[in-house]
Design a protein around this nucleic acid. Sequence first.
DNA 1: GCCCAATGTTGACGATGTCAACATTGGGCT
DNA 2: AGCCCAATGTTGACATCGTCAACATTGGGC
Lengths: 188, 188
Amino acid sequence: MLAKDGARAVSLRAVARRAGVSQTAPYRHFSDKGALVAAVAAEGFRRLALAMDAAARRARPRTAAARVRALGQGYVRFAVANPAMVRLMFGPLLVQRAEHPALDAAARAAYAMIAAAVAEALGAPQGGEEASVATIAAWALVHGLSQLLIDRQISAAMCGGLARGALIDRVIGEFGRGLASPKSGESR
Amino acid sequence: MLAKDGARAVSLRAVARRAGVSQTAPYRHFSDKGALVAAVAAEGFRRLALAMDAAARRARPRTAAARVRALGQGYVRFAVANPAMVRLMFGPLLVQRAEHPALDAAARAAYAMIAAAVAEALGAPQGGEEASVATIAAWALVHGLSQLLIDRQISAAMCGGLARGALIDRVIGEFGRGLASPKSGESR
DNA sequence: GCCCAATGTTGACGATGTCAACATTGGGCT
DNA sequence: AGCCCAATGTTGACATCGTCAACATTGGGC
């Protein structure tokens, strides 16, 4: 339902109809519409982590920085392939993420993948200030790019004729340059 | 209403009540709830552009790269200061941004500020491939950081004890390093 | 001073999230 | 085997929402 008609069309009643039960039956399984959404979003974070991992494996990265880039590409490609899901995961239907432990755990797991890879690429201890900043920067970059692509904020005119896939690679490469330690960088 | 109770609480009827008119009076001025939201979002983009500009002026940047960083800081600080507005501007209540010309124009104007500054910092022609990629990367970084901060996705544990303001500066500095031309970079 | 366009109102329809009260049913205990 | 409770589902209702159609008001230009 999410993929076909967007998050807007996901109503508790519609879900119930689709399941062939009465409109209030979902309340036996979820305390709230928010709880249902949180459960779906948690599944989304699990799939996101899987997609990132698969992308990193497929790329067979030879350096830690290359692994970070592969993870980022997996992130953005997942977002572009599942726009409604990602919108749900970060959207306003989730009032309080902390209220739903399963959601929170799934989101943290996805974050941890990026954090570990960035720390290794940097050779800095995970949890330290330097690694934390770099991790958040990496996450912000791929997250922002995903959101902009999903929301169609990036018109064709803005991206100098680049195809979407190429744009993703180039933007991520932009950051990878900064990643390759304080010294000079491998160009791509 | 946006700032106090969030975008969720903005209903056409509530707006009408607040204005002291009947519930359908807004339809004399906006064809749709979407049109009202688009008008508010357009105002939001105008304020965002103003906030970025003010930040860039206040910083008195001496290099073009410093100006880009100041714009980015203005972007993120505006988002953190006006979370509901920013959520509205990029949220799902806006079905088709292109349908509302005023909104589109305001959003493009904000984008143009970043594009011009990045192109100058790079010494590359605006609209060219290199400048386009760098602009989108810069935008994605500040946009992503804004969204993550707004949605409280960044827990205290993730940012190595840095205060919010310091985190913003450091993350933007991370990108600025890549900006300072293919050669080495000024450190902050 | 009239008239029309702008603006506002009333009443209604279908949809939604949610609640309270009631019904069904299947598996574990005696 | 037979009972009973917990899980699950249903009916009906309420307030709210976006939206529409039909009707009322009103103030400024001819």
